[in-house]
């Protein structure tokens, strides 16, 4: 457990030194979502319907684009190989790194999502559901993404490859995340969707760190 806190602290410190990375991801998210009204036209009813899905897809892509940062710096300077040798469980280190990825790449998106929601004319209630679904759903993206990031470590064209591996696995999160907002605006209540998102989160918390640790060993052997 101590190692968990230690890695989180260290990686957060490193991330604070490169604030521009955080901002780049955030602005990608904002620009990406703002492109949609320009593409489909300013019809308020249409935008209202598309809003949750667009915000979620933008969050998915932004999270995926920043996956490269998850391990690459530690891989480049050899820290990662030291971590493989460390007696503590590698899965815990991976979990810590995924947590940092979530804090630095996705938490800012969650904070900005209501602003984008307003652009799409979502109601107040829908905005709250959007925030809740993003809060529960985006950690799943970091966790699942950590498998893809560790498998493609050090490969040429790794960035595009990771999208092929990871995006299909993101689909359930997207469906229930955006679906939660739709369900609440159509009066069905978002509870069912949010509970399933929670179940996905628990499942990925249990399963993905081990898988990503195995993937790291494969990539570094």
């Amino acid at each position: 457990m101590k190692i968990l806190a230690w890695v989180v602290k260290r990686d957060l410190l490193l991330a604070m030194r490169r604030k521009s990375d955080v901002l780049t991801t955030l602005f990608f998210f904002v620009i990406m979502a703002s492109l949609f009204p320009l593409g489909v036209g300013p019809e308020p009813q249409l935008l209202k319907q598309m809003g949750p899905g667009v915000v979620w897809v933008a969050a998915l892509l932004a999270s995926m684009l920043s996956l490269g940062r998850l391990f690459s710096a530690d891989y480049a300077d050899g820290t990662l190989e030291q971590m493989l040798l460390c007696p503590e469980s590698l899965a815990l280190i991976v979990l810590a790194k995924a947590a940092v990825h979530w804090i630095t790449a996705e938490l800012p998106l969650v904070a900005f999502a209501p602003l984008l929601g307003l652009q799409f004319g979502l109601s107040e209630q829908a905005l709250w559901v959007l925030i809740a679904s993003l809060l529960i759903g985006t950690p799943v993206l970091s966790l699942v993404g950590s498998i893809g990031a560790s498998l493609t470590l050090g490969l040429r064209g790794g960035g595009v490859l990771v999208s092929l591996l990871v995006l299909p696995l993101y689909i359930p999160t997207l469906i229930f995340g955006a679906g939660a907002v739709d369900a609440s605006t159509s009066g069905l209540g978002a509870q069912g969707h949010l509970s399933i998102l929670g179940a996905l989160l628990v499942l990925s918390l249990l399963a993905t760190p081990k898988a990503a640790a195995a993937a790291l060993r494969i990539s570094l052997e």
Binding site: I147, L151, L165, P168, L169, I171, P172, I175, F176, G179, I196, L200, A207, A211, A214, A215, I218, S219
Partner: peptide, 22 residues
């Protein structure tokens, strides 16, 4: 690496099918 992604995929196939159906 291929083996690992195939296993991850096969675990996800039922989840994906269920969510798409929903």
């Amino acid at each position: 690496a291929g083996a690992l992604i195939a296993l991850v995929g096969v675990i996800n196939v039922p989840i994906i099918y269920f969510s798409v159906k929903w």
